[in-house]
């Protein structure tokens, strides 16, 4: 399958055309958030208070980078395990979040929310933090500076490589890919 380029924010037409296994180069802006930032945002949602970011049509990248060395906007910045965000993700998807980037399986609840509200989950290569950092051109601190690497940042990315792992049609590349190559013995 050819690689396609997508520019954020995500629109519905783009999402409708994405299928599992599609390799994608992302361009534009991404928000970062992981465990601690998600917990804070979910607390705000439950208290009916505004979030520090407008998640509508956006992508959240699950990452906690290493400190930026001199002359670089960011250090190594590969994906963390998405499953730790599963208990938070459906509420953000319901608010209009359209994409997530991480590594590893999503829960049935997240997959259901992706189908219902039309959102996709992209896998980036775990451990490829140095490679992925080269695709990050700018970094802006958006919220929760006290969380250090767990703060919410906005990354401006160019040709950031990901692959569609879950689409809005219930496709799951983890399930399908493993089934294809499993040998019964």
């Amino acid at each position: 399958m050819d690689v396609i380029s997508i520019t954020t924010p995500l629109n519905e037409e783009t999402i409708l055309n994405l299928r599992v296994g599609q390799r994608v180069l992302l361009n534009g802006k991404l928000f970062t958030a992981r465990d601690a930032a998600h917990k804070k945002m979910i607390d705000l949602i439950r208290q009916k208070k505004p979030l520090p970011i407008d998640v509508r049509n956006q992508i959240i990248y699950y990452v906690g980078p290493t400190p930026a060395p001199p002359g670089r906007p960011v250090g190594a910045a590969g994906p963390t395990t998405a499953g730790r965000m599963d208990s938070y993700a459906p509420e953000l998807i319901a608010l209009g979040l359209k994409g997530m980037i991480g590594k590893g399986y999503r829960s049935p609840e997240v997959i259901e929310a992706m189908q219902k509200y039309k959102a996709v989950y992209f896998a980036a290569v775990g451990g490829a933090g140095a490679l992925l950092s080269q695709c990050i051109q700018e970094v802006e601190l958006i919220a929760y500076p006290e969380l250090g690497p767990e703060a919410i940042y906005q990354f401006t990315v160019k040709n950031f490589p990901v692959i569609v792992a879950n689409d809005i049609y219930g496709g799951d590349l983890y399930r399908d890919g493993q089934k294809t190559y499993a040998i019964n013995c």
Binding site: G21, P65, T66, T80, G127, A128, A130, L131
Partner: peptide, 28 residues
Amino acid sequence: SPVGKEILTQLLQNAEIAKRNKIPMCQD
């Protein structure tokens, strides 16, 4: 697997970039 091959290619490139630029291979 073509996806698997691509991932392994990215991991080898990652190691090269990390070594050359003296940045960590992984953020963790």
